[in-house]
Simulated scan of single mutants.
Amino acid sequence: MATKKNVVSMKQDVPAQLEVLRADVANLAEAIKLQAKATVAEKKSTIKDVTAEKTELVKDRYSELSTKAETSIQENPLTSIAVAVGAGIVLGALLRR
């Protein structure tokens, strides 16, 4: 059971405890901020690496398809012209509607 003397001494401790609590909350906030920055930096690095890798794959694939198309056009010029004309006719018909 709390006596009057105990209640008075607890009242005097409350401001000190509040200051300790404020300091603890500030420390916790700073720790969370540092952790968030570290996580963001790590994710940013990962994204850069993945993006560079995927960009390189797309460039390689584009180069491969471009070379393949050029080879196909050189080997079959009449077929290539016929396909281009056919595609133009189809696109023209679709765009008229």
Score class of each variant (00 low, 15 high):
M1A: 12
A2P: 02
T3R: 00
T3N: 13
T3G: 06
T3E: 06
V8K: 05
V8T: 12
K11M: 12
K11V: 12
Q12G: 06
D13H: 08
A16W: 03
V20R: 03
L21A: 10
R22P: 00
D24S: 11
A26G: 02
A26P: 01
L28E: 12
A29Y: 04
A29Q: 12
A29H: 05
E30S: 08
E30P: 02
A31F: 06
K33A: 15
K33T: 14
L34M: 12
Q35H: 10
T39E: 15
E42A: 14
E42Y: 01
K43R: 13
K44R: 09
K44W: 07
I47W: 10
I47G: 01
V50M: 13
E53F: 14
T55A: 08
T55L: 14
E56I: 09
D60I: 07
E64D: 10
E64Y: 14
S66Q: 06
K68S: 13
I73R: 00
E75V: 10
E75P: 00
N76C: 03
P77N: 00
L78Y: 07
T79M: 07
A84M: 07
G86W: 11
A87K: 05
G88H: 01
I89N: 02
V90P: 01
L91Y: 04
G92L: 08
G92Q: 02
A93L: 13
L94Q: 03
L94T: 01
R96S: 07
R97F: 11
